[in-house]
């Protein structure tokens, strides 16, 4: 259902789309069944002259069967949805596969700040690349993101990656993503964070290995140079 509108751009996007499609089929079946039976009953038992209503208390076993059978079937369907949901949830939010790279995401009132590992591949060194509202990552690399907020609750969301995590001030939340699609995609803030909530759009550039390496090389030399000059801002 989702992949028809939004491309699946990360490793677990497929899992979420599959789960949503499963729910769509189960829930769609029951929905259509109920609506059809509902409208058929209205038509079939509309008021006709000389035809009295029937007296069905619904307490006898034979009558209650009409309720308990669908009731049990719905219970069984719910178990499928339950297992699927917890399976996907565990993969995304509880499991943390080993990271190949790391990025820090700092949200504040109305802008995203991203800190990429510099050429040395180490976070927290002088050559880290800090960018505003522009995140650049390498395709098919598993990233750990460390998400935090400086003021109110924000929400880092990349629809193409099916990624969404609230940034709670006072907490450092870790999660992971692995982009599988190159290109530039939207970052949205998914939690109301004040007047500029609509301005907090950002873009994520997913580059292949070569472009990414050249981007990192070019930017980390700049941040090294800026770190060397004393008056530079930075971390």
């Amino acid at each position: 259902m989702i992949e028809s509108l939004v491309p699946a751009g990360s490793s677990y996007a497929g899992e979420i789309d599959l789960l949503v499609n499963m729910i769509l089929w189960i829930v769609g079946f029951w929905f259509v069944l109920c609506e059809v039976v509902f409208f058929w009953l209205i038509f079939r038992f509309r008021k006709k002259e000389g035809v009295p209503g029937q007296y069905i208390s619904g307490e006898e076993k034979s009558q209650k069967r009409w309720i308990t059978i669908p009731h049990v079937l719905v219970l069984v369907c719910d178990i499928f949805i339950l297992v699927g949901a917890i399976w996907v949830w565990y993969d995304i939010k509880q499991d943390l596969p080993p990271a190949q790279a790391e990025v820090r995401i700092i949200s504040q009132q109305w802008a995203w700040t991203f800190v990429h590992e510099g050429a040395d591949g180490e976070m927290g060194t002088a050559d880290d690349i800090t960018t505003i509202n522009e995140l650049t990552v390498q395709v098919d690399t598993l990233y750990h993101y460390k998400l935090e907020s400086l003021d109110v609750i924000h929400d880092f969301s990349v629809p193409v990656w099916r990624l969404k995590q609230d940034a709670i001030p006072g907490r450092l939340i870790t999660g992971w993503f692995e982009p599988t699609l190159t290109g530039s995609f939207d970052i949205q803030c998914a939690e109301l964070c004040g007047v500029g909530h609509a301005l907090m759009g950002g873009t994520v550039h997913v580059k292949n290995a070569a472009d990414y390496a050249s981007w990192v090389a070019e930017n980390s030399t700049m941040s090294l140079a800026s770190a060397a000059t004393p008056h530079a801002g930075g971390e």
Partner: peptide, 28 residues
């Protein structure tokens, strides 16, 4: 998630009961 899917069941049953009430009626 477990409790949320659990609570959807009584509501589903309630909807079935209301739809079943229409069976055999003289609906105006």
């Amino acid at each position: 998630t477990v409790t949320t899917l659990l609570i959807s069941i009584p509501i589903a049953e309630l909807m079935f009961v209301y739809i079943a009430t229409l069976y055999g009626g003289r609906i105006s």
